[in-house]
Design a protein around this nucleic acid. Structure first.
Length: 930
RNA sequence: GGGCGGUUAGCUCAGUUGGUUAGAGCGCCUGCCUUACAAGCAGGAUGUCGGGGGUUCAAGUCCCUCACCGCCCACCA
């Protein structure tokens, strides 16, 4: 144990070593349970799988820190903890990344072909895909690396395919032509969630369409429509007006000529009547373009109108656009506006601010566009997902997210799950070129299921990435192939205990997991063969949603703003533990975290403080051994007892430690990382270091015969410090691991402190008497220090003090504690004689507390001016307190209705305040003039 | 348009089911190399709890209202 530690803690010197050790030794692996395995109750948690394209950012680090704290805490508390990591193939993002790489080589995927391109993506993935998990390893995340998965792994792909086929068989998947959000750059459909809307200052163009008479000739009258996307008029099939709009009553039944399109594309379009049209927007007349607008599509359905798609996959105008064919949509817009103006059909261009949808991934303006896609019928899934939450089988923290979730789920639309990408799970459907029907199958079919023809081509679309990640809670535990070997994984670890995530993927992922989990797990029988009810079908029992990490100025971190804090950089600078502690301490629910390195600096200091406490301890162990004391490092973990014959500070620190355990446990139960962190901080720094260590110096004298207190004290010191390391370990795994090994002279009872037991609260360790008497000693010490300061007594000067303990029910204890601990007092403050007086003390060198008066005997008196200031301020404070107390106590309602302990407490406090007030007044009056 | 959150010390934030005179860290001021730690020790200053109204014996805490900041959902062409 005589460990030579450097004077200052240097995290970089130890962290890499421990991070590698934890991974190498597989310390946190949680193997598939075997029969009769009596390990603790499972605590299962899935890592929200980062994208393979991802680089670790502060949000990840917050997320991982919280999960790691909880997992380590649960593991140390005896639960069978499994934290399961993996990565997501991230369809669009990854494909984009590789396409960009290809572009820099002057290539593109189309000329490469699908297979070669996919090979290339795999190669990319092998090369870069592990980056984020490597970073995670470096941060010490206590995950089971042996279970690491990738969403395109064979076994997870089987699950995806099974899920698709099953839903299809259950008539829950259909294919059809609907308006979807289309990204012209990614050239794929995207779901509603993948569209982000930005406010955009655009225009509202008012265009007049010629009205046709019954003879088909222009009547000279016009109907003016308003649009924000003039180019879509090429696909217009009608103009809609409100049936009761008095301005247009005479146009009912009439047709219009669609301007611009000539020759074989020229067309007449009807004026249709629909309540949906709002009379006060624009001109009250709406062009109807079913192929390019969701509302128009609905309108088209109601009125049996055709849909004319005028754009290709890249949002260039197609052949339907006549002379505009080939133009990009925005170029077409400009040209069309020019042409309309030339024709005199452009009535007005008005400024109009509206929301424009952009592709979440590449920020391209999305184009609502009619296309053939695969959809999941969502209502049956949503019904279960709603019930699961409403019935309390899934609990959200903070609670408000339950409302958000339900609100979304209750207004959900069918889910477009097909993507026109190459990277992803290819949809297991085959098109028959003979009968044109679709065959969906678990194994690649050789013949059409409908007509038997062999001319099958597989669907080229892949599935939305969230379809596979939505299945993770079931698929990672072996579903659908639940053999006897992996059924126990499923039995043991499903439902998972908790999901920790940010609200940004509440709908993308959390909601989908709930829907898919409830749907598919519901079919898996319980281990005893009985049917699984909804309660046990949910993918997780609790969801903890954390805040966003912002920069120190509360700005959202973004690459464009250049204010992104790289966690790895900060970690290098301050140490992982300090950064973890910062995140934990600032993670109060419902509020975003303004990440400020000033705080991290403070927690680095905290780590250093602990380091130095350890140095102090080792130093004393060495001294003790040199003096012949026997200290066996094997006995350290024997446990802590409350020894009523031990010195006061030892009894007190055991009591405080015990109390802190209870507080930390309670805080973590409620995901109050901030509270847990602050209880630990306060205990370690302000109780353990400031008071206990300073006090114990008195006992740690290892000269020959003064042995009893020294022996008791050094062992108590070791035990409490070791316990504190375990308490702190989930928050600061590196530092605590290092010191724990040092404490055990590199021969600890377990391979890691992370496998040791978390301290447990024990009512046996409660010691109220030690708490109250020590707290009086603290008051006494503080009063004397304050007095000495005001008397300008040098820090090295020793002075006598006088104490008068005020008569009260506790005063015997207090006086006894003071008398018995004068030597301890001398450790805390430079005093010589301590004289107890039976009469109250007065004068400028006295301080008053509710329980005692204390005077420092010194020839000098305090500075009259500052003394007057202090007393005046005190008096004001006391008077304010008295006024408040009298007001309340004089109020009959209060005395009659308030609980007795409140009234009694106030009375007692008022009496004390009155006393202090009188003393302060007297002291002020006694002050000599300045 | 609908919904939600926030506003407490110079800064960043706590503040349990309403209960005695509102807290922490950082920063600031003063004094200290006290043999674990200057990344330290000791002491100190700092608040009309966003404004207004109400309920209550009692409001930072509950209700109403206004203001400002932020987020989510919807997408009326």
């Amino acid at each position: 144990m005589p460990h030579e530690l450097p004077k200052a803690y240097d995290p970089t010197a130890i962290e890499d070593h421990w991070a590698a050790y934890w991974v190498r030794e597989n310390l946190f692996a949680q193997p598939t349970p075997t029969a009769g395995d009596a390990s603790g109750e499972p605590f299962t948690i899935l890592l929200p799988p980062p994208n393979v394209t991802g680089r670790l950012h502060m949000g990840h680090m917050l997320n991982q820190t919280e999960m790691d704290i909880l997992t380590r805490w649960q593991r140390m508390s005896g639960r069978r903890a499994l934290w399961l990591p993996g990565t997501d193939h991230a369809g669009i993002a990854t494909q984009m990344m590789v396409e960009r790489q290809l572009a820099s080589e002057g290539k593109n995927r189309q000329e490469m072909g699908r297979e070669a391109f996919i090979d290339r993506v795999w190669e990319w993935k092998r090369h870069y895909g592990g980056a984020i998990l490597d970073q995670m390893k470096r941060l010490g995340a206590s995950v089971d690396w042996q279970r690491e998965y990738f969403t395109l792994d064979e076994r997870l792909s089987v699950a995806v395919r099974e899920a698709f086929v099953r839903l299809y068989e259950q008539d829950m998947i259909y294919r059809g032509a609907y308006i979807v959000n289309w990204c012209p750059r990614c050239q794929t459909a995207i779901s509603d969630l993948e569209v982000v809307y930005d406010e955009h200052k655009g225009h509202l163009w008012e265009i007049k369409y010629p009205v046709l008479g019954n003879d088909g000739q222009e009547t000279g009258e016009f109907l003016t429509i308003a649009t924000t996307r003039p180019e879509t008029m090429l696909g217009d099939v009608a103009v809609a007006i409100h049936p009761e709009d008095e301005r247009y009553l005479h146009l009912h039944g009439k047709k219009l000529k669609l301007p611009l399109l000539e020759g074989d594309k020229a067309r007449e379009i009807p004026i249709i009547l629909d309540d949906w049209v709002s009379r006060d927007f624009g001109t009250g007349a709406v062009k109807v373009t079913p192929a390019h607008d969701p509302n128009d599509f609905a309108l088209g359905q109601r009125h049996h109108l055709p849909s004319i798609n005028v754009m290709d996959d890249a949002a260039h105008i197609n052949a339907e656009g006549g002379k505009y064919a080939g133009l990009d949509r925005f170029a077409a817009r400009r040209r069309i506006v020019e042409d309309l103006e030339a024709l005199g059909l452009l009535v007005a261009v008005k400024d109009h601010t509206h929301n424009v949808g952009h592709c979440d991934r590449c920020k391209t303006v999305v184009e609502p566009r009619l296309s053939l896609q695969w959809f999941v019928k969502i209502q049956p899934l949503a019904d279960r997902a709603i019930a699961a939450v409403k019935d309390g089988h899934i609990k959200f923290t903070p609670e408000m997210y339950e409302k958000t979730y339900l609100n979304w789920m209750e207004n959900i639309h069918d889910w477009c799950i097909s993507r026109q990408l190459w990277w992803g799970h290819r949809i297991p459907a085959w098109h028959c070129s003979t009968c044109h029907k679709v065959t969906v199958a678990r194994v690649d079919p050789s013949a059409c299921a409908h007509c038997g023809a062999a001319m099958l081509t597989q669907e080229t679309d892949v599935l939305d990435t969230w379809f596979s990640s939505g299945l993770l809670p079931v698929s990672v535990f072996g579903w659908p192939n639940l053999t006897s070997e992996n059924i126990s994984d499923f039995d043991t670890f499903y439902p998972t205990s908790l999901l920790v995530t940010g609200f940004d993927i509440l709908f993308f992922w959390v909601a989908r997991m709930i829907m898919l989990g409830c749907w598919f797990a519901g079919d898996v029988p319980m281990s005893d063969g009985s049917a699984r009810d909804l309660k046990d079908s949910v993918p997780f029992r609790e969801v903890y949603i954390h805040a966003l990490v912002r920069d120190a100025n509360r700005e959202k971190m973004s690459k464009t703003k250049g204010n992104v804090i790289d966690p790895i950089e900060i970690v290098k600078q301050y140490g992982t533990d300090a950064v973890r502690f910062t995140l934990a301490a600032m993670a109060s629910p419902g509020t975003d975290i303004a990440f400020n390195v000033d705080r991290t600096e403070g927690y680095r200091a905290f780590a250093n403080k602990i380091w130095n406490a350890a140095r102090f301890l080792f130093m004393n162990v060495t001294r003790a051994r040199e003096a012949g004391f026997r200290i066996d490092s094997k006995n350290i973990s024997k446990g802590i007892t409350q020894d009523l014959s031990s010195p006061l500070e030892s009894q007190w620190i055991v009591h405080q430690f015990n109390l802190t355990i209870a507080l930390v446990n309670a805080a973590l139960e409620d995901y109050r990382f901030d509270e847990a962190a602050s209880y630990i901080y306060k205990f370690v720094w302000h109780n353990f270091c400031d008071w206990y260590l300073e006090g114990i110096k008195l006992r740690l004298t290892f000269d020959a015969d003064v042995s009893v207190d020294a022996n008791v004290s050094i062992h108590m010191l070791l035990a409490v410090f070791e316990g504190s390391l375990r308490l702190l370990s989930p928050f600061m795994p590196f530092l605590t691991e290092e010191l724990w090994w040092a404490l055990h002279e590199d021969n600890p009872p377990l391979k890691s402190i992370g496998l040791a037991r978390f301290p447990e609260f024990s009512s046996q360790l409660v010691n109220i008497r030690a708490e109250t008497t020590f707290s009086e000693i603290q008051d006494l010490v503080t009063s004397i220090r304050e007095l000495r300061k005001s008397l300008l007594i040098g820090d090295n000067e020793t002075t006598p003090v006088e104490i008068h303990v005020i008569t009260s029910p506790e005063s015997t204890n207090i006086e006894e504690a003071f008398r018995n601990n004068t030597d301890l007092l001398r450790r805390y403050v430079r005093i010589s004689d301590v004289n107890f007086k039976s009469a109250p003390l007065h004068g400028p060198q006295v301080r008053h507390t509710p329980n005692f008066d204390v005077a420092v005997v010194y020839e000098r008196t305090p500075d009259v001016h500052s003394e007057r200031e202090r007393l005046t301020k005190d008096i004001a404070k006391y008077e304010k307190g008295m006024a408040a107390a009298e007001r309340q106590l004089g109020n009959e309602g209060f005395v009659a209705k308030a609980p007795a302990h409140i009234v009694e407490g106030l009375k007692k406090q008022a009496a004390e305040t009155q006393l202090l007030l009188e003393k302060a007044r007297a002291a002020l009056a006694a002050l000599p003039p300045e």
